[in-house]
Design a protein around this nucleic acid. Sequence first.
DNA 1: TCCCTAATTGACAGCGTGTCAATAGACACG
DNA 2: CGTGTCTATTGACACGCTGTCAATTAGGGA
Lengths: 194, 194
Amino acid sequence: MSSTNPTTRTRILDATCELLESTPGTGARMSDIAKRAGVSRQALYLHFPNRTELFIAATRHQDIAHGLHAALDAGICSGRGTDRLAALVATWGAYIPHIFGMAKTLMVLKETDEEAARAWNERMGDFREACSTVVTVLARDGQLTAAMTQEESTDWLWTQLSITNWELLTQSCGWDQARYVMMMQQAAHRVLTA
Amino acid sequence: MSSTNPTTRTRILDATCELLESTPGTGARMSDIAKRAGVSRQALYLHFPNRTELFIAATRHQDIAHGLHAALDAGICSGRGTDRLAALVATWGAYIPHIFGMAKTLMVLKETDEEAARAWNERMGDFREACSTVVTVLARDGQLTAAMTQEESTDWLWTQLSITNWELLTQSCGWDQARYVMMMQQAAHRVLTA
DNA sequence: TCCCTAATTGACAGCGTGTCAATAGACACG
DNA sequence: CGTGTCTATTGACACGCTGTCAATTAGGGA
């Protein structure tokens, strides 16, 4: 798994990210990635056991490069409940465009690949944590609606902010990024707060 | 395309629907479908040009069998705006479980198959019509929020009722059907009405 | 009986993944 | 200088699934 020379491995991961971002969801082939990384197809198998693991590693690579966790934590760790809610929507909403291609690919892959499904669920579980945190603060500040339990509120918020919803609104409906964030903040506010 | 003996064709379509419903999203193989239909793999190609077209035909077959359009029209054609909104959510929400397997398969397929994408978009466009109708009536009855345009409201409602959202809430979060419908009605009401 | 159609059987090409063996180049070590 | 090791390349191959083709069989109607 861990190679002594990191440059080739990194180059492969970068190439994978670039390729998947430029062609979201399309089944990028191993040979395509190899070509883009300037490496033989078989070299990929020297660093990653198979296609799925390569994609999973690329996902982590990307998360680290973009500093997702830090950004999320910073945004939702101060202010009253409603402010944190708005910050969560804004931060996550700004992050999605950068990882959409990879995410789409994993989403497609997870339907037929157990390993990919595990990785995807873990990733989504992390984000659900952030949603849960915000909902808890809303409740503590007495701002949460009485119509839903805390868990239901978390479920709804997590679903609302799904990558698929971002895709539908921005890609299919043509909303721009600013409108997406604003509308989502508004909707979350209306549904979750008293 | 049109066969003189409909029984074999129908048996294939039924087998396809059954198989896709029992294993949602999984890439059901042509040989699996043939086995289930009690027919040779090559017989499938006598009735459908390829895998994608078979799935598309099966989708239509299913929509007709379940009478989707009639149900939708009946539900949203009477009452004031808010009543029609509730009816739309209830009718569509009750329909999704019956077609989830097929829908999931098409959703996966559309990422790599142009033809499947076309069919899927057409299908989703039909449902968007229903959403648009309800939003128009809401506006006419003066019940629509001022925070969104009619088109934005339609976009949001259509996204909200996406099959993926149903999947996240009922499959991943474990909501039962009744709760899903109730919460969705509530959320739609809060976000869309003044 | 002859013909037409639907269906079966078996074979095969194409494509992508994953594996394997043989080989080449770089580099450290004695 | 020669040797061993690590990384990468090349070329070949098995496997699984889709889609195509040719030869053959079974049934029904004129």
